[in-house]
């Protein structure tokens, strides 16, 4: 079974974003970029399907291919996936913002060329917080989907996936080929070891362009303005529970 894992390069989750004073966007200059945490979980799961572990038999996956759409530096994100254990990478070179719909179309073209049995994506990218690429890819391919996965059990021609939903947990069966998107509790990604980081440098990365894949990536939506959210007037401290309750009464919430 071949597994494809799309990985996105995003601002490191530990860093605070700054909105540019002129409202034209978010300032990412000189800030550390990392693999989107949900994508890292997706790579870890795919690699476990190959190596065995996390409930998967060794060899359940025969090959793990990571794909990223982004600027040249997205190669680092792919190297990150390769260091976790993916076999090879595909970089679709695109500068500037590529919207989820265009990403899904590019991924569809990659899927048609690579013919994976399973595509595991993150449930959301922590920069745009869109939570839509996996579902869109599933629709474009007419494949079934299991989003927000916290457990995956592979079976004969199907996967049984436990999903984190508002009411609790839901388990669905999806026929392969299928799309799965990861939630945070699916697994805990490993720290890539130094030898694996070195090995990852020698693994192949193929470069492509949206034109090669025949996809128009022109944005559909127009961002008119980027602003800081209104600041809360917090920071008020009290010494005792009695004072706290007095404040709550004053505010009319009890």
């Amino acid at each position: 079974m071949k597994v494809l894992v799309p990985v996105k390069r995003v601002l490191d989750y530990n860093l605070k974003v700054r909105v540019k004073p002129d409202g034209s966007g978010v300032d990412l200059s000189n800030l550390k970029m990392s693999i989107n945490p949900f994508c890292e979980i997706a790579v870890e799961e795919a690699v476990r399907m190959k190596e065995g572990g996390g409930g998967h038999a060794k060899g359940a996956a025969s090959e793990v291919v990571a794909v990223s759409i982004g600027p040249d530096q997205a190669q680092e994100t792919l190297r990150n996936a390769l260091a976790i254990g993916a076999d090879r990478g595909i970089l679709v070179k695109a500068d500037g913002e590529v919207e989820p719909l265009a990403v899904a179309k590019l991924l569809k073209a990659v899927v048609e060329a690579e013919k994976p049995d399973l595509v595991i994506l993150g449930k959301q990218a922590i920069d745009d917080d869109s939570n839509q690429t996996g579902q869109m890819l599933a629709a474009l391919l007419d494949w079934p989907q299991a989003t927000f996965a916290s457990k995956i059990v592979l079976g004969e021609g199907k996967a049984t996936v436990t999903r984190e939903v508002d009411g609790g947990l839901q388990t669905v069966d999806v026929q392969l080929p299928a799309i799965i998107t990861t939630d945070l509790r699916l697994n805990e990604p490993r720290y890539a070891s130094l030898p694996n980081i070195m090995k990852a440098k020698k693994k192949p990365i193929d470069a492509k362009t949206p034109a090669d894949l025949g996809v128009d990536t022109a944005p559909r939506l127009k961002v008119v303005k980027t602003a800081e959210p209104p600041k809360r007037q917090g920071g008020v401290k009290v010494k005792t529970a009695a004072e706290a309750v007095a404040k709550l009464k004053e505010a009319g919430v009890i």
């Binding site: 989820p100 719909l101 939570n131 839509q132 579902q135 629709a139 927000f148 508002d166 944005p219 939506l221």
Partner: peptide
Amino acid sequence: TTGKNAAPRIAAQLDVMQ
């Protein structure tokens, strides 16, 4: 979670960004 799960599939079929 129900809306987030279904909406993008419909958007993609209609060829629109969500």
